[in-house]
């Protein structure tokens, strides 16, 4: 097991702030835009982004929800073990809104496909964009691309990219874990 730190400390915070500024460029004051984090790990990034946006736009309402994709996955009845569903919490109408889907790591693109499928059960969005903290390049199984990217990483399938958060893991950090 070998761990390589890709991002931590002040740079981590700067990356999140940059993503927020990029969002504001395209979404102005967020009157018609909503943030949706994917369970289980994307919700921490979505909450952090929402928190940061509220600091930058103190008088605006930033709507943020959590989406669990377990019921929409394409590997049901195919895996070895079953996934326990997490909570979906979307307390607003998606119909006609610009949705920013948020996940921590973009790898094969299958979670994002499932999230887009699940999202349609809450209404027809005007537009959907994707924000990720880490883009594992050249590893897609589906034609999915992110609109906002924190960092790009070149990795091989046996490696893992782990994002840890101050709130749950004690430290903001992105590490690349290799088997040996």
């Amino acid at each position: 097991m070998q761990n390589l730190t890709l991002l931590d400390g002040p740079k981590f915070q700067i990356t999140i702030q940059r993503l927020c500024r990029q969002l504001i460029e395209n979404h102005d004051d967020f009157t018609n835009s909503v943030l949706i984090g994917t369970q289980p790990r994307g919700i921490y990034l979505a909450r952090r982004v929402a928190e940061e946006l509220r600091k930058i736009l103190p008088n605006k309402t930033i709507l943020q929800g959590d989406m669990d994709v377990t019921f929409y996955r394409d590997d049901f009845r195919r895996g070895e073990r079953q996934l326990v569903p997490n909570q979906t919490r979307i307390d607003f109408i998606i119909e006609g809104k610009k949705v920013i889907l948020i996940d921590d790591v973009l790898w094969t693109g299958r979670t994002i496909r499932a999230a887009m499928d699940g999202m349609l059960y809450f209404g027809r969005p005007a537009k959907v964009e994707l924000l990720v903290l880490v883009d594992r390049r050249y590893s897609r199984h589906l034609p999915v691309a992110a609109d906002y990217v924190g960092i790009e990483v070149d990795s091989i399938a046996s490696q893992k990219v782990v994002v840890s958060w101050k709130e749950t893991d004690g430290e903001d950090k992105i590490i690349l874990v290799s088997e040996k």
Binding site: R41, R81, V84, D104, W107, T108, G109, K160, V161, V162
Partner: peptide, 13 residues
């Protein structure tokens, strides 16, 4: 499958 984002990936049971 892309559930293995990290060590704290989704619970299985």
């Amino acid at each position: 499958f892309d559930i293995n984002h990290g060590e704290n990936s989704q619970t299985m049971a």
